[in-house]
Simulated scan of single mutants.
Amino acid sequence: MPAVLALHGRFGARGLRVIGVSSFDPDDAEAERKAAEEATREEKMDYATYLDTNGTWSKTAGLVDIPAFALLGPDGRVLLRHRGKLALGAEAYAEMERAIERALPASPR
């Protein structure tokens, strides 16, 4: 979570919106909701988290691994996908930063 929070903090003012998506089986909806709320508090996630019944949205977006990350453009198109952990200082993190830089408008002056 530190990498995601860092991206959110760095690019939020320029329009980056971070959301969390947690896939779950409908039979476990209440337990999954509670687990998501607990993780949100523990990790100090200050962005929205959605529950994705049966992973429907995640599968459509091509995010079948856990964890997985996607950068969506303003039109909802997937600009970049990353499978696996996203860690500060890793090449995948730098790649995500570069993709965000290209996708967002220039910094306000």
Rank of each mutant, 00 (worst) to 15 (best):
V64N: 14
M45R: 03
T60H: 12
G84D: 03
P67T: 14
T49K: 10
A90N: 01
A70E: 04
G55T: 00
Y47I: 06
T60W: 11
Y50A: 11
A90G: 05
L51D: 02
W57D: 04
E101S: 08
T60P: 06
G89A: 04
E91R: 14
D75A: 10
D52R: 02
L72G: 07
Y47A: 10
T60V: 08
T60K: 13
A94N: 08
R102Q: 06
E97C: 11
E43R: 12
W57S: 09
D46T: 11
G55W: 10
A99Q: 02
V78M: 10
A61E: 02
A61C: 03
Y47R: 05
G76F: 04
T49L: 15
A48R: 13
R81P: 05
T60C: 12
L71G: 11
E97F: 05
A99L: 05
F69Y: 12
E95D: 13
L51F: 04
K85C: 02
H82Q: 08
R77E: 15
A90W: 09
I66D: 00
I66F: 01
A90L: 10
E43F: 14
Y50Q: 09
E95H: 08
G73P: 02
T53Y: 05
L63Y: 00
L63F: 00
T56H: 05
N54W: 09
R83Y: 03
D52N: 08
L72Q: 05
Y47E: 03
E91F: 07
H82Y: 01
K59F: 13
R83H: 13
D65I: 06
A99E: 00
A70G: 06
L88F: 14
G73H: 06
E95C: 03
T56S: 14
D46N: 14
P74W: 06
E97G: 10
A68Y: 01
R102V: 12
E91Q: 10
